[in-house]
């Protein structure tokens, strides 16, 4: 009897605390969505459970931001183009390093893998990007990560686990490396390709530091960066040490243009939406990728 009670107590305490943590992870997203759909005046008073004065006015105001459509386009473009380039390059190199006939095979593989363990640092990288005319150039978003050491390890491990006979029969038919890669290896490796694709796509969508360092042309700004600048426009709120306010905060508020909270909710929602919507479907690929990486790494 006592044992049963203890078990029940444990179960309720255990599920209870997990549900609290799950709530802390989920509620912020819900809160921002309902506030973005509410009347800004109501929202300022505090809305916690349900939208008040349902309206799309925050979204209409958001669309008044001159660069908003351009930013959505750039973010989408870097996600699509970047994913295609990275998947193609990493899969092809990953396949080539499995070929015993490739001259300098192990040297090439080591040359790539070693890049995971050191970093040239910000300034040398920044100077290089400037020298290559990648400053204010769309290619800066998609080229540097094209050949990724981690993805090459994943692909190599996966291809090595495939039966060699499939490839050999194609070679006898006289197919070249290229044809074998496109017609045989790529379709067979789709499970690992999907992992790489979701990792890259989420990474591309979320990136903003490269934008921040190297882009001064507002036509190339991403949605993440647009959100960042709009969030930081309200430094006055941060600068006040208490509700009474200091002159410092007031000065900042009058000097800079402050984005209303309602518009920020709206930008946050459209920035987070693709991830929230697709994550439940992508999760299994992330899990698989991290497992394969853990076994190898």
């Amino acid at each position: 009897m006592v044992k049963q009670w203890k078990g029940l107590l444990f179960q309720s305490f255990n599920s209870g605390s997990l549900l609290v943590f799950a709530f802390l992870c989920a509620y912020p997203f819900y809160y921002i969505i309902i506030n973005s759909l509410s009347d800004p005046a109501e929202s300022a008073k505090g809305i916690y459970f349900w939208p008040q004065g349902l309206t799309l006015s925050s979204y209409e105001q958001m669309m008044q931001i001159p660069t908003i459509f351009q930013s959505v386009f750039i973010s989408a473009a870097r996600t699509v183009v970047g994913t295609i380039i990275t998947v193609f390059c990493s899969a092809f190199v990953g396949y080539m390093v499995t070929k015993k006939e490739l001259p300098f095979r192990s040297t090439i593989y080591r040359l790539i893998i070693v890049t995971m363990f050191f970093s040239p640092g910000l300034i040398p990288w920044y100077m290089l990007m400037k020298t290559l005319y990648l400053k204010n150039n769309f290619l800066l978003y998609v080229l540097p990560g094209a050949v990724s050491a981690f993805f090459i390890i994943l692909v190599k491990t996966y291809i090595e686990s495939l039966p060699a006979s499939l490839e050999e029969s194609a070679q006898i038919d006289g197919a070249g490396v290229w044809t074998i890669f496109i017609k045989i290896i790529f379709p067979l490796s789709l499970p690992i390709i999907a992992c790489i694709a979701v990792f890259t796509a989420v990474g591309q969508w979320n990136s903003w530091a490269d934008n921040f360092y190297l882009v001064t042309d507002s036509r190339l700004n991403t949605l993440q960066y647009l959100l960042y600048t709009n969030l930081k426009s309200n430094m006055a709120d941060i600068m006040r040490t208490s509700a009474s306010g200091t002159t410092q905060g007031a000065a900042l508020a009058s000097a800079g243009k402050v984005t209303p909270m309602s518009i920020r909710y709206a930008i946050t929602v459209i920035t987070v939406f693709p991830i929230m919507l697709l994550y439940p479907f992508m999760q299994k690929y992330f899990v698989k990728g991290i497992m394969l990486g853990a076994i190898k790494g």
């Binding site: 992870c25 506030n35 959100l227 969030l231 909710y265 946050t268 920035t271 987070v272 439940p280």
Partner: peptide, 21 residues
């Protein structure tokens, strides 16, 4: 699923969320 979503949003979004809280 719910608890692993925060790992997949950018730091800008994390800031946006913590700012509103």
């Amino acid at each position: 699923t719910v608890t692993s979503i925060p790992n997949f949003i950018s730091w800008v979004l994390v800031y946006a969320i913590f700012f509103s809280f």
